[in-house]
Design a protein around this nucleic acid. Structure first.
Lengths: 146, 146
DNA sequence: TTATTAAAAGACAAAAAGGTCTTTTGGTAA
DNA sequence: TTACCAAAAGACCTTTTTGTCTTTTAATAA
């Protein structure tokens, strides 16, 4: 579904938001351990996301990553677009440049509704809404963390 | 949705089946031109698919690629699995090893039905069913070929 | 102000995906 | 049986993805 970088970013940001709820600002090593991602890699990924404005960070003792409470929630479609580009869930499953209801590829009729569902999902859900679900103990982020 | 190799394979096989209907056995250059794929690459891809038993080929004059009429239709899920491996539409969108209705990731509830729809689609459709749609002039394979 | 801490920056590298090309093999037809 | 044709085989290359590591910068606390 998503590439590795997007998966790590999603898990990482949800973990960060979850910790922020408890007043904590996790660092790269803790995040890497808890979401089971390569430490240096998640560090680089978070760095890029900070630069892109999705979240903030603080250096030095007590530093780490956190979301600005004054900023609006982050729909995961924004995250995905920032990492994978816009191509992801807009294209034709056959790879045709031109494919729409007027000129459909042979998979279009059945695939279009699926693509719509995906777009709806990633537009509606935000990092914060996902973290909330984990917080309520209804969902998990890895095999240990409930 | 699919990777490039799968896209080329899908378009290529549908084109071959379509030509077979008219008693023709297209070769790599023709196929590459018609489905807009890199000639050497589609040659390699088709070569692998022949070896995997999805279709047959003939060398020499009048040679080319064709489907054995005695063999059953090829569900595109088989094609996709052969090229991309089984991971494709079975995994968790969050990348968790363990993710099911008992222990769901925060996207599971909304993503599981989508994944099911995708699996249904690629299980039901075959190379032949897709070619049939193009044959009936209801769908197209590229911007020229109707 | 100094030591310590943790992120930022960016070079580097391995692996996978995507693509190209040459040589060999096996058919067809004249 | 010779000439030719087209796929098979496989080496090679480029780009993207994934990942690692070192050095620098900035914040904090003593």
């Amino acid at each position: 579904m998503f590439n590795k970088e997007t998966e790590y970013a999603l898990r990482g940001l949800v973990y960060i938001d979850l910790q922020n709820m408890g007043g904590r600002r996790p660092g790269t090593l803790e995040i890497a351990r808890e979401i089971e991602a390569p430490p240096f890699y998640i560090a680089k990924i978070l760095q890029r996301l900070v630069r892109a404005g999705f979240l903030r960070s603080l250096k030095g003792k007590g530093g780490g990553f956190f979301f600005d409470p004054d900023k609006p929630d982050v729909p995961i479609i924004n995250l995905i677009s920032s990492i994978e580009g816009d191509r992801s869930f807009s294209g034709c499953s056959f790879g045709l440049k031109q494919c729409d209801s007027d000129n459909p590829c042979p998979l279009h009729g059945k695939y279009a509704p699926i693509r719509e569902a995906i777009n709806k999902l990633i537009t509606e859900e935000t990092v914060q809404s996902l973290a909330e679900k984990v917080y309520k103990n209804e969902f998990h982020l890895n095999e240990f963390l409930k």
